[in-house]
Structures are given as C-alpha cells and as structure tokens.
Design a protein around this nucleic acid. Structure first.
Lengths: 111, 111
DNA sequence: CTTATATTCAACCATATGGTTGAATGTATT
DNA sequence: AATACATTCAACCATATGGTTGAATATAAG
C-alpha cells in the first residue's frame, strides 16, 4: 500500500507480450541476455531494454558472471499481483451472470 | 492464447493507479461517470478517458440509462489475470530463497 | 596484444499515454 | 422553448514507450 509505484511498474512491465514471454522463460531457470534474446525477432538492444524495464519493476534481478549478465525471476511482484487479482474472486465465482444482473439492478434501486 | 492483445490491454489498463481505484470502486456496484470521477483530483474528461481505456480492455461495460452512463465491472479479464499470475505459484511458495539459490546454482552447472 | 563476445549507452524516431481546455451532443427539468 | 446536467469529442501538449542503429565498455580467448 505504501508505494503503489512499484506495483504500477510491475503491471506496466507485464503488459508487454515480449516481457511476459521473458518472465515465463525465466521460470525455467536464470538465463543471460543473449539466451533470452534468441527467440525474439528483435535486436539485442531491444531485448536489453525490456530487461531493464523488468528489472526496474523488480520482476527480475541481475548478477554479473564474467561478461554475462544472469537474469533471474523475482517472485514477489508476481505474488503481489496474484494476491491483488484474487480480491476480485467473488466476481467470477459461480452464478456470474446472475451476480452481474443483481448488481445492475441494485444500482437502479438506490439511484 | 489466440488474442494476447486483449490481455495486454488489460494489464496496461490496470497499471494506472487511478484505473485500479476505479475498478476497486466498481466492486461495490455499478456507478455513473460523475460518481466515479468524484474522488479524483482530475477533470471529468480525464476520468472519462480512463473509463474508455478500461472499456477498451474489456474490464468494464457500459449501459446508457438516460443521460447517465452506468459502468459495471466485467470479471473475465481479472479472472484471467489471476489465473495467469497463479502459474508462478511455485516461485513464492515456501523455501523461497532456497529455491532461488538452487536455480542460480543449476544455471551455472549447465552453462 | 589483438580480436571476438556480451552487454550497455546514447541518440534518434514514431507512436502511445495522461492530462488539460473548450466545444458539441443528448437528455432532463422548468 | 430555455436551461441545466451528464457525458463525449477534438485539439493540444508534455512525457513515456518501443524500437532502431552505431559507438562504447568490459571480459574472454588466441
């Protein structure tokens, strides 16, 4: 709650499909920049920038091993995201349409 | 999986704190634009644009009732988001640091 | 020491985003 | 019919984003 800005940046970072692909790739273990860039039809610099965004959002961390930068997934922001989105659980849990209708109707009541 | 673009837009929409506030507000029932705008230190037009973004992302729906536009929360994108972020569950479930260390170590093994 | 590899930095460009103000639209109210 | 209210549309502005290319840095290898 204190610093929403970090959460903002995590969401924004994950909004880009390339960055989500990178995050998913990192669930199978840390990797260096070149490896992460390989599957993409994009310049290495482009990927490097995406990594900087992910790092700035706290989604990945970097350790230098010689000339390679090794990137690892940091779970905390994802855990936060899961927790936050879980707050809406009652909105999709069973009787979805009925609930929606109910809400619309009750709105009309107290307006 | 087919159209990732919708998911992209949902994440991007939720990356803005004002829009998250609006979404959270809508969990307590539908509301019209003016009501939603009231708590914000922002022009009505600004809020209107945020609503358009949320609508474009499929996070809210709009029904016109006279001159008022009534906005309601659409649960599906949030459910998707919860499901997606849940895929990373094993990354924060117990023995977090140990797991991270393990991954870093195994990376060095097969490099 | 020279060369190759891994990566970033810097500049640039096009487009998107978040906000504003002012005018336009449509629906209520009197 | 005149006026007030709810909302969007349009233009504008500043800044951010996503990508490129080319040069710089740092480490590894011959």
């Amino acid at each position: 709650m204190a610093t929403t800005a970090r959460f903002d940046r995590a969401l924004a970072a994950l909004a880009h499909p390339a960055r989500r692909r990178i995050v998913e790739r990192l669930t199978r273990g840390p990797a260096c920049v070149t490896d992460l860039a390989a599957p993409f039809d994009m310049s290495l610099n482009g990927v490097s920038k995406h990594l900087k965004v992910l790092e700035g959002a706290g989604l990945i961390s970097r350790t230098r091993s010689g000339r390679e930068h090794v990137l690892s997934l940091k779970p905390e922001p994802l855990r936060q995201l899961h927790a936050w989105s879980g707050k809406f659980h009652r909105f999709w849990s069973d009787r979805l349409d009925a609930l929606e209708d109910h809400l619309k109707a009750s709105k009309e009541d107290n307006s």
